[in-house]
Write a protein that binds this DNA or RNA. Structure first.
Lengths: 108, 108
DNA sequence: CTGGATCCATAGCGATACTG
DNA sequence: CAGTATCGCTATGGATCCAG
């Protein structure tokens, strides 16, 4: 009973948060809602394709809300859902680790 | 230049923690040092190949220490390094999120 | 027991061009 | 502005066999 369902939970998370852009994307959205091209700018290096796919995936997971404001041209806004807000601590701690990593390896 | 270095740190982290098994592996090692076949057992589903590769990668990143105790048969022990201990909060928070995720999707 | 070597399948991702 | 569609490469990971 002391066995490892813990690792499984981590796997569950990684199925959604894995990949190169998911977490950086969420990280950007923690600042507040953004539009498609805002994200393209704020997540440097992401391709338009991956942006679309990962936004889709996160939306399907219920972590992101997509709102369309009609008009010409249309305006589409992406925001973290209430559930997605649960990712804040995740992003924070991963970011912290990344910063520490960079500092460590920078000093070697 | 004022732009998102936060996201970059997240990317740095994911370069090391990405992949399907890295974090589950670290999660297992949080309990204490383990041997190769212990890990094979405790990280259900991992192939021997990936276990080798990921242990290697984490070792190269300085997050894991590998100790060989000579004898016949040899005994090899893997443990988190001091640096690797920095992953504890990461694993914890990811695990928490995973558990919550499973609960949420289980209840839908 | 602790791996290394090989082969192979798939998933992830990038680049580019096109569209309402 | 906010996407879709297509192509192809590479990385990731599984299966199997071999070895000290």
């Amino acid at each position: 009973m002391k066995e490892n369902p813990s690792g499984c939970s981590v796997e569950e998370s990684m199925r959604i948060l894995g990949g190169r852009w998911r977490l950086p994307l969420v990280s950007c959205l923690l600042d507040g809602p953004k539009r498609f091209n805002d994200l393209r700018r704020d997540v440097p290096g992401i391709s338009q394709r991956m942006l679309t796919l990962d936004l889709r995936a996160l939306e399907d997971a219920g972590l992101i809300r997509r709102t369309v404001y009609p008009g010409s041209p249309v305006k589409v806004e992406y925001a973290l859902s209430e559930d997605g807000e649960r990712l804040r601590p995740v992003v924070e701690v991963v970011k912290t680790f990344g910063l520490w990593l960079k500092a460590r390896d920078g000093k070697l």
